[in-house]
Design a protein around this nucleic acid. Structure first.
Lengths: 130, 130
DNA sequence: AAATCTATACTACACTTGTAGCGTAATGAC
DNA sequence: GTCATTACGCTACAAGTGTAGTATAGATTT
């Protein structure tokens, strides 16, 4: 159960991307990264984080009196699920076809890319929509 | 205003794809195509169509006492907007990079493909998010 | 220690989405 | 002409989303 990442709302995706970029952060830190482009109140960022925890997309870990949040799935795994969903549901093409594209342009490390490629090629990641 | 197609919900996208495939249809006809895989009641299909009309994603036209519905944007234009949104918002890559991919795998006619390519290359279609 | 800041957990509230049912008028079958 | 179908325009209602505010308790500053 890869946490059904494509069920996240736009706002939630924004938060997830911050966690992918910066790893484990406090709510306030997440807010610091997200606020400039969204203009949310801090409490909004908190609410989103909590909802994402409930959804299983984010893990929370108490750390010396502060909650730290981190993405529940790595970026490659998450992107694999998202690409698969988009390719199959919207474009109606084979998800694996997207890989070469990513290898050229996405800012993925070599390891990330390798993993993503493996995930998509293997038909792993998410069950096809139907 | 290309109707902000990426604001459509999953269910609405399903309906839109039917209209892209079959052109102008009555609510009942749309339902016929969509019901097998979604199991909606007819009234559900109707509601979705009406909501999409309100959103500007679908146009309604009365025809001899029956409303006919059609996609407000062509498939290439719609896909261009969707690809652009996905590429920029999720993958954070240049949308034009997706074109070669589509030319190989998507079931677009030559004219559709040409139009899509033009749209993405030109930076047309949708204004970039933020 | 008092005042302030910050964190967490609740609560709130309007709008959207999923998913339909109902009432009424027009259409077609008998 | 009456009955069954169908279409259409409302209404409905729970769950999800966008977007916060508040109450309460611990930490920091002066």
């Amino acid at each position: 159960m890869t946490t059904d990442i494509h069920e996240l709302s736009r706002s939630e995706m924004e938060v997830l991307k911050v966690l992918w970029r910066h790893g484990r952060l406090s709510a306030r830190e997440v807010h610091g990264h997200v606020e400039p482009r969204r203009g949310w109140a801090l409490s909004t960022t908190r609410t989103l984080l909590e909802r994402m925890v409930r959804k299983g997309a984010v893990v929370r870990e108490p750390f010396h009196g502060v909650n730290l949040y981190a993405a529940a799935v790595s970026r490659p795994v998450g992107l694999a699920a998202l690409v698969r969903d988009f390719a199959e549901r919207i474009l109606e093409i084979d998800a694996a076809a997207v890989v070469p594209l990513l290898s050229r342009d996405a800012d993925l490390s070599d390891e990330e890319l390798a993993e993503l490629e493996r995930l998509l090629a293997a038909g792993d990641g998410e069950a096809p929509r139907d």
